[in-house]
Every structure is written in structure tokens, then in C-alpha cells.
Design a protein around this nucleic acid. Structure first.
Lengths: 335, 335
DNA sequence: CTGAAAGCGCTTACAG
DNA sequence: CTGAAAGCGCTTACAG
């Protein structure tokens, strides 16, 4: 099986390779309509597919975008439900614009540069990296970090309005009469997203002239398992808490599971609010009240901003912040 | 920013490009230890990263594997929880073996060939295609279809023991005293996986010398929403049914939701068994009894078989079938 | 153990 | 509107 090449098409059409190239790349102004027609027909007949590697070697552009996701050394990709949801959307947006997607797990930050260079990627979307990792990035092509608050000028961020999300979550619970509200999430010295949600959370107290006891913080991983553990020991460790704001749905769902296991009804005794609005969150019992992010828009925006930078051969534009809203379901009740 | 090339390294090391190439590709036998050492050092110092497109143009191999997933025209990828789980594992297995992954949504079957040719992919994993689509495939590089029973010699299949899975699901329900068991799944004229599960399901009845009324089939999509709809109308449409075997967990969970919404307790009045053992299935209420597939092994096996074929420049080996087992949780009870 | 030459399949200026 | 030449950064035989 030998490959059909530009030269084959050119020979058969009786024109130069250049002309075929122009037809294929849609430089219509440079070729006569009849030639275009003839070349098109032969391309279709012969089933010619241009070689992307030859093209990317000769041109400056590969039309390949990396989707880079952290991958602990021995582990598979961190494909949380949230990551999975955004991934599918990104592939689609890219495909519609004629780009291909290289999916790559990153075990060590240095691999980012290697991944970019190796395939001459035109750009990359970073999904799930810590701000400090994004800060340290030194890249030569446009890069876009999802859910990042990094100040690195080489990587634009796209994220939801995490501050506002934290604020409305707390405001909702405060409105229901709760005052002792536990903030549960990963350590946020290094995760801007969580930090923002925390600041918004506190703002809601301030807005009401209330103070919030900072002993009501639980530092946990963003997993169902560690949420469950927290739920199991909640009454022991935080006896005064009547409500929990968890920084991710999967975590909130774990907390509910742990609570219920120890006989604490949700929302009867403890109310729980999450963040994300996963599909899952409307399925569990009780259905989770949560701060909804617009994931399709986030993915579309990420691709738009990144490709704008790629196509202008420019650095990415300003960061973008997307609206969030509260979805009230069954996991919260008046105190 | 100009790229560091083979030639730069060769010049600096005072050797030919060929020698550098040999060092980089680990042809150690062809270069003296001192030269290797010197070249290695310079490569590290200069941060040289080989150009994958140049390499794949010159060599026969791109070390790029496609992960092809159906994508309805207007939709994003069909990234079900099951697909998402397997995807992360595949990326990891490939990365460990020095391959890169191109993720591509396929809107029309013809795009498979185009995707393979465009980037000179060394091979591809097909995830979630119908058997009839795999049947029609005419490819020139090794291809591996996950969950396929296609007879296409050009595409090897890897799947769980779906027949056995259907059998143990039904045997479990029969053992609990159920006799009127609904089979709920997608139309299986074209999906071998579902067909196999159905045959196993019936086998369990035959094993006990029982007959099964084939009016107890519900054809539904594999989504939570259509499961819920089935749950809502279950008592009306199938009044005799005391148990449901759904061919996917996400579907089973939807059925439970619909049932509970109409006041039918699970497993009090109706028992439900799923298939997959998603993370989700241990989280929902009641926790789902299901047939567990070994997804990490399925992914690893897919990659192993595919790369064996790629590296031998051969067609894929024989199809592989993986064991399944029943995970008893809370959604089933004696009749 | 090491190297000079040809070539992979395209695109990019530059001419006409 | 069309083309001949050079070159992108590698690897593959083939020599020595």
C-alpha cells in the first residue's frame, strides 16, 4: 500500500505540486476555477489525504493542540467527572475548527515543554494543574490553563466565577438560618480556585455582618473517599456544624454518604452544598444542592481564546471568568 | 526562538548527524561509549527534543496511536463514565511505552481512514463503535476495537465475557426467587455486546430448566434519562416484573430513580442488577448490585495487543475475552 | 565504530 | 494564474 502524494495528484492533473497545494489549502484566488475543479476531482478519486507530518515539518503550523492533564507517576490520568466532561467538549470544538488533539498525561512539569516541542504543537490546553505549576511554566507557544488564577503572562486562564460561587453557596446556607458552616476542600495555599471560593464564602458572612469561625475548615482531597471519611467523623470533629460547603460535588457527595452511614440525616440534621453541578449530582440521594458551572461554555471559551492566540501568533488574550448560579435541590434545608 | 536540531548537536559534538541519531534512538551497539556520553551531555545541555513530525516523515513509524470515539455530528464525544474510565488507562499504557495519543471524535465512518492516514498513525483503538461499523472498516494499520464482536479480520476485539456476565446476573436474580425478569438494554441486532449479554441471560433460565417470556424486553438507550423513563412506566408496562437486568449501570441507576419516584421501593418490590461496576454504582442509593468488568485490564490488554501488532508490523492477534464477576450490593433482594 | 547522500511529502518565498 | 528550487529535521540503506 503506497501512499498517494501531492506529486501523484500533480502528475495526474498535469499541474505543479504548488498548484495542487494551493487548491487543497483553499487559496482559491491563486488558481483558475477549471484547475480547481479538475484537481478536486482527482483528489477525491484517488482518496488523497495530505500528510500532516510533512505539512507540519514544512509549514510553521501543525494544527495540533495538546490537551495536557496531570498524571501522577504510577497513576492513570486524573480523569475526574469534571475533567471528563470538559475533555469531550474541547475535542469537539477543536475538531470543528480543523485542529487535532493530542492527549497527554504529565507526570513531571518538565514534560510540558517536551510535549509541546516534540510534536511542534501549535498550542495547548492545561486541565487540572495547580497555579504554582502554571506559574513556573516557560513556554513558547500559546497555552491556556483551565481553572487557573496564575499570573503567568504566558498562560491565560479561563475559569468560573469562583468567588461568586463561594459567596452564593454560603449566602444560601445563611439564608436558611445556618451559622456554623464547615468549609471543606483541598489545601488552598496553592489552588487559586479553592482560594477564591473560600474568599467568596467568607464574604457572604461579612455581607451579613456575621463573623465566621475559622476553626471550621476541613482540609480534604477532592475525592468521594475522603469526603466520606469527613462525613464519618463530622459530628465528632465539628460538633457545632449544621452545614457543609464542599468545594466539589464529588466531595460533597462523599460527605453525604459518610453522614448517612453514621445515621446523620441530610438535610435533616446537616445541610450540604457542592460546587460543579455534575450529572451525578442530580442522581444521588438526596439530590445535591450545588453551584453550577457552565462546562460547555468553559470548554468552548478555552478553545476560542487559545486558537485566537495561535492564529494571530500572539500571546493569549485576557483571562475570562464565567458566571455561575445556584441549583437548589434536596440536600439543604432550614436550620 | 529557533529550534535545536540534530545537526546542531552533531556540530557541537563533532560527529555526524547519524551518530547523534543512533545515540538518541538507543542503538548503543553502533556508537562508542565515550561518544554516547558526550552526545548525551550535549543533548541535555541544549535541551534537544527530536521533531516527531520529521521523524515520522523519514521513518515508517509515527509512534502515534489514535483513540477513535464516535461523535454524532452536532454532539461532543460520547464520553460515558465507562468510556472516560477506559480512556485514562489507555493514555497511561501508551505513554509508558513511548507512544503518543491522538484523540479524535468520528462523526462519519469514513473519517476513520482519513484520521489514520493524515497523521500516519501506527494504529488505533476504537472505543464505542457498533459491530456493523467495525465490520465495514477497511484499514491498512492495526486496529483494535474495544467491546467488539465484529468478525472483521482487520480489527481485533477486546471485551469482557459478556455472555457470562448476562448469565450470572440472571442466575443471581433467579437464585433470589425472581422469575419475571425484565431485560433492559439497547437494540441488540447491531450491538454484539448486548446480544451476548442477552444470550447469557437466557442461558441462566435454560440452566434451571425454566422458560423466559420474551415479552419481557424493554429497548432503551443507554442513558440515565431513558432508564428513568423506563422506571416510571415499569409497573404499568410490565406489571408482572419483579426484577430488572439492565445492560449498563448508568441505565440501571436511571431505572432505580424512576421506580423510586413512582413510589416503588428498590429492592423491596423490584430488584435491579446492572453491568459495568462504575464508581458511581457504589455511591447511589441503594448501592447497585452489578456485573463488574475489569476496566484497567481491558485497557491494558487493548494496548498490549495493539502494540504487539504495530511492532511486528502485523495484523492484530486473536480477540481476548476478560472475566467478569458479580458484585452484590443493595439493589437486589429475595422475591 | 562512523559518515555522506538521498529522500520522506509537504510549503515557502521568489519568479514569471 | 502557474512553476522550479530550496528546505523543514529527521532516518535509511550503503560504504568504509
Amino acid at each position: 500500500m503506497v501512499r498517494v502524494t501531492l506529486k501523484d495528484i500533480a502528475n495526474e492533473a498535469g499541474v505543479s505540486m504548488m498548484t495542487v497545494s494551493n487548491v487543497i489549502n483553499g487559496n482559491r484566488a491563486r488558481v483558475s476555477p477549471e484547475t480547481i475543479e479538475r484537481v478536486r476531482r482527482i483528489v477525491a478519486e484517488r482518496g488523497y489525504v495530505p500528510s500532516a507530518s510533512a505539512r507540519s515539518l514544512a509549514a510553521r503550523s501543525s494544527r495540533l493542540i495538546g490537551l495536557l492533564v496531570p498524571a501522577a507517576d504510577e497513576d492513570s490520568l486524573t480523569l475526574s467527572p469534571h475533567t471528563g466532561a470538559i475533555l469531550g467538549q474541547i475535542e469537539r470544538a477543536l475538531r470543528k475548527r480543523g485542529y487535532h488533539l493530542l492527549l497527554r498525561g504529565i507526570a513531571h512539569p518538565d514534560e510540558v515543554g517536551e510535549a509541546l516541542q516534540s510534536w511542534s504543537l501549535d498550542g495547548a490546553v492545561l486541565l487540572g494543574f495547580l497555579d504554582e505549576e502554571v506559574d513556573a511554566l516557560d513556554v513558547t507557544v500559546p497555552v491556556l490553563a483551565v481553572d487557573s488564577y496564575s499570573r503567568n503572562r504566558l498562560a491565560t486562564g479561563v475559569r468560573s466565577d469562583d468567588f461568586e460561587g463561594g459567596r452564593i453557596a454560603a449566602a444560601h446556607l445563611l439564608g436558611l438560618g445556618h451559622r456554623e458552616i464547615l468549609f471543606a476542600g483541598p489545601s488552598f495555599s496553592d489552588v487559586g480556585v479553592v482560594h477564591q471560593r473560600f474568599e467568596g464564602f467568607r464574604q457572604a458572612f461579612a455581607d451579613r455582618g456575621l463573623s465566621w469561625s475559622d476553626s471550621l475548615i476541613a482540609t480534604v482531597n477532592t475525592t468521594h473517599a475522603s469526603g466520606r471519611e469527613l462525613g464519618l467523623r463530622l459530628r465528632a470533629d465539628f460538633p457545632s456544624a449544621t452545614a457543609v460547603f464542599a468545594t466539589a460535588d464529588i466531595l460533597a457527595i462523599g460527605v453525604m454518604a459518610g453522614l448517612v452511614e453514621t445515621g446523620v440525616p441530610v438535610p435533616g440534621v446537616v445541610s450540604v452544598v457542592g460546587f460543579d453541578d455534575l450529572d451525578l449530582s442530580a442522581i444521588v440521594t438526596p439530590k445535591l444542592t450545588t453551584v453550577a458551572q457552565d462546562i460547555p461554555t468553559k470548554a468552548a471559551m478555552a478553545v476560542d481564546l487559545l486558537l485566537a492566540a495561535v492564529e494571530k501568533r500572539d500571546r493569549p488574550a485576557e483571562p475570562v471568568t464565567l458566571d455561575v448560579h445556584l441549583v437548589e435541590r434536596e440536600s439543604t434545608a432550614p436550620r
